[in-house]
Design a binder for these strands. Structure first.
Lengths: 332, 332
DNA sequence: CTGAAAGCGCTTACAG
DNA sequence: CTGAAAGCGCTTACAG
């Protein structure tokens, strides 16, 4: 067929109108019905699709949104499905806005550099940051560059970045309270990474709930299954008095459960166990795991919608917190 | 600072050279040392980053590669980590080529339409297809449009699409042969979806291995854990004579294991069990699962590199098959 | 509602 | 090695 893709010019000539008229049609601006019909027909006949680069050049919009993930993050490629679910939510929202998703993994220093350049080069209309650790220099640099940025957690550092998070603290508090109400006397926690908001807030929720009732018993983890195993082993040997554990992720709870089974502890008889996330497998463990459900796809959707608002209006909630929900199963 | 981003013009003026010279520098073409120094300095001083849209408009290259995933695919958002690992591999390869990844989920008819238009509109330089089912019209349409396309599985339909796959058949064959060698007499299989290459090939591998030694015993599954449970229940009630099961995915093997435990069957004593994938959890099941490892990140890397070749050279292997490897643990 | 024209920010023969 | 100039394919005031 045609050797090169048809342009606006092709369509205009064929329809007997100017390029401006065709352009207006494509952009849903008013066009007289007769011209409209002629143009529609010409478009269909030649199979015209507007060239995005040319459009972007004049509109300064690319129709592209970046999702930046620190590849090193334990969560990104872990078993908890955080990453795919987040993407699912984000995609759903971007779909309605006809924006497309560019995935950028910020693993190495080189890739972080590349991401920063891309963003500054106007390659994308905005950036979503997810699961950052500590005070991330990339987050700071992007925020300072003036490109619209949102984050799934409060950004630590000398910048103001709108964030959409889940109620980590409230969820953790509810989990531990349920343990207290059901009669547990000495409750330990296995924490997430101390440099992540999710890790910090879930620990704070634990501390909120136990209050002065007991001394806090804290074992450090990093959200992974292995870290849950190690922490549980430590708790068993160093804190023989505990009768309940709140693990800040389901993966860690799974690891803890494994260790408990090995050691002959009965769950929930000898030891109650609560996780956080409500991953698919939580209902399949033995016994099924009590946990705190967080709306990851909702997080993705809100993250995207906040960013889209920021891009078009410029106005947006500085901080949005989505509710979490305690799901009681058999492990507590 | 500056109100608008600096352009080539800005840099050229500041360095006292023409725009062409600056452009050549950016594109690594020869430039006399004195000019070079002046330009480098000007770039640094104004913080110049080339505008990608303008570049794309003239070069007809976007630096963007699409990864298209049918959202409905059981594998995309399943627990087997296929999706994140594939992306990891793809990203790694694209990184070296300085291309960026656009993720397109082909869930609805609308999104498929959008994907096709995007590709045709030259929004991306090429497309990777993953985990398609049956004869996918989108795959066919993309291939026909002339845009470079590769797929992670052989594409069924009236088009020629270069593919990069794993040796599903050989892996399945090896798994079943090991069962035979270890003395199992009546081996069943739980299959993947019959409209996916991975499902079809693993079944063929099973059939290869049992040959005429026994009647095939086949229970249909769709790679998910639940389908593995259902299939195992059916096998237990309808095929009491079996002493081994080859499940075409680890998730299905996990489901089967669960059912076996419930029913009091001992693994591997009463029933040997082999999976496929070697997901992280395979080594944590009770007993640890014998399985066939497939190199998912390698798949991603090769998929990307094949596409990059196709885009630049136009030449590429029509079909690449990566080896799989039997990992013997305790379940068989 | 419509068209002529300028301009978005680059790259690339072409001539020197 | 370098510059002047054309051109990539759109959108958008501007004037009518």
């Amino acid at each position: 067929m045609a050797n090169r893709r048809p342009t606006l010019e092709t369509v205009a000539a064929r329809a007997g109108v100017s390029r401006a008229t065709v352009s207006r049609m494509i952009n849903d601006q008013p066009v007289a019905p007769p011209s409209r019909r002629a143009v529609e027909r010409a478009i269909a006949e030649v199979g015209y699709v507007p060239n995005q680069a040319a459009r972007s050049l004049v509109t300064q919009r690319t129709g592209l949104i970046a999702l930046v993930l620190p590849e090193s993050s334990t969560r990104v490629f872990s078993d908890d499905q955080f990453f795919p679910r987040l993407i699912q939510g984000v995609s759903q929202e971007l779909e309605t806005a006809d924006e497309q998703l560019v995935l950028m993994l910020a693993g190495s220093a080189a890739s972080r550099d590349r991401i920063e350049r891309s963003a500054v080069a106007g390659r994308v209309d905005g950036v979503m940051l997810a699961s950052l650790h500590g005070t991330d220099p990339l987050a700071v640099a992007l925020a300072k560059s003036g490109i619209p940025v949102v984050s799934n957690e409060r950004v630590l550092g000398p910048v103001e970045v709108p964030s959409v998070g889940v109620d980590n603290r409230g969820g953790a508090r509810a989990a531990v309270q349920q343990l207290i109400v059901s009669g547990r006397r000495r409750i330990a926690t296995i924490t997430g990474p101390s440099d992540m908001i999710a890790g910090m807030d879930r620990l704070d929720g634990y501390l909120d709930a136990i209050g002065d009732a007991q001394e806090p018993v804290v074992a450090a983890g990093d959200f992974t299954r292995t870290s849950g195993e190690v922490a549980m082993e430590r708790l068993l040997s160093e804190e023989p008095g505990i009768d309940a554990v709140f693990a800040a992720s389901d993966l860690m709870a799974e690891g803890a459960l494994h260790v408990l089974r090995q050691s002959g502890s009965r769950v929930p008889g000898d030891m109650a166990l609560v996780g956080f996330d409500d991953i698919t497998r939580a209902r399949y463990t033995e016994p099924p795991l009590t946990t705190v459900r967080q709306p990851i796809d909702g997080l993705g959707r809100h993250l995207a919608s906040q960013l889209l608002h920021l891009i078009s209006d410029g106005a947006v909630e500085p901080q949005l917190t989505l509710p979490t929900e305690l799901v009681v199963r058999d492990s507590s």
